[in-house]
């Protein structure tokens, strides 16, 4: 009984503490949950929040797709090829360690304050992470199964689909999860620095007006969308692929 209601209980306690603090501090810098809900509703009705959230989600979708595809291709290639890996390993370390802010600034300076520069900055930040995860996964592939595939003349596409991708599934899932979390954060920075719409741009405005309630309202929308993605998309994908276990 308790364990089933634990998530609800835990969230209620969180809201309780927030409410208590808001009442105790009685400051415009920490609005109460009720206040934030009200502001959230107003932003929704005006259509402002859905619009900016939509813009950000679209950017997320595009940059996420590009990064995952590129990361998978490079990661699997490096994992399968010792020599290439030995050479590009150093590049990977460099790209992994460039701060996100630097890539964003450089992309805007070199390519202008454009949409493609924004997407490129996000992709450049995310790809090295995907590469590292997929490379590890590819190295851990079962050699015997690969031999089996070769002996029975599976060919490239069939081997990828039936032998390699199922084994990479856990690595793909964790790259997806950490990727979503990372890209969210970088996209906001990209929008804050060089776009005139999206969540990051809005947050920047609210910051200048010290509109804490709006900032928190946008944050709630944000967390909500990510949770929705997790439950509506990632969990079912997980269950589908792990049926055989």
């Amino acid at each position: 009984m308790l364990s089933r209601n634990l998530p609800t209980l835990s969230i209620l306690v969180f809201l309780g503490i927030w409410q208590g603090l808001a009442i105790f501090l009685h400051s415009s810098l920490l609005p109460s949950p009720e206040n934030v809900a009200h502001v959230f509703w107003q932003h929704c009705q005006s259509g402002e929040l859905p619009y900016h959230l939509g813009v950000t989600l679209l950017r997320l979708l595009v940059s996420f797709t590009i990064s995952m595809l590129l990361g998978c291709i490079i990661g699997i290639t490096l994992g399968r090829n010792e020599k290439l890996n030995a050479f590009f390993d150093h590049w990977l370390v460099i790209f992994l360690n460039i701060p996100a802010l630097v890539t964003v600034i450089l992309c805007y300076v070199w390519f202008g304050l454009t949409e493609s520069a924004a997407i490129l900055a996000v992709v450049l930040n995310k790809v090295p992470n995907v590469v590292v995860m997929l490379r590890e996964g590819t190295r851990a592939l079962d050699k015997d199964l690969l031999n089996m595939a070769k002996c029975y003349q599976f060919g490239r596409i069939k081997t990828l689909r039936h032998i390699i991708l199922p084994q990479l599934h856990p690595f793909l899932m964790s790259a997806t999860r950490s990727g979503l979390a990372l890209i969210w954060k970088i996209i906001l920075m990209v929008e804050l620095l060089g776009r005139s719409n999206g969540m990051g741009y809005q947050l920047h405005l609210f910051f200048q007006w010290f509109d804490i309630a709006s900032i928190l309202a946008y944050t709630v929308a944000f967390v909500g969308v990510i949770q929705l993605l997790e439950f509506a998309l990632l969990k079912p994908l997980d269950n589908l692929a792990l049926k055989w276990r």
Partner: peptide, 22 residues
């Protein structure tokens, strides 16, 4: 060439019949 390896080398994510058909 049909090869029976030291290990069965079946794909755990496919059923018996799918493993054969593959």
């Amino acid at each position: 060439i049909g090869f029976v390896f030291q290990r069965p080398c079946l794909l755990p994510w496919r059923t018996v019949r799918e493993n054969i058909e593959l």
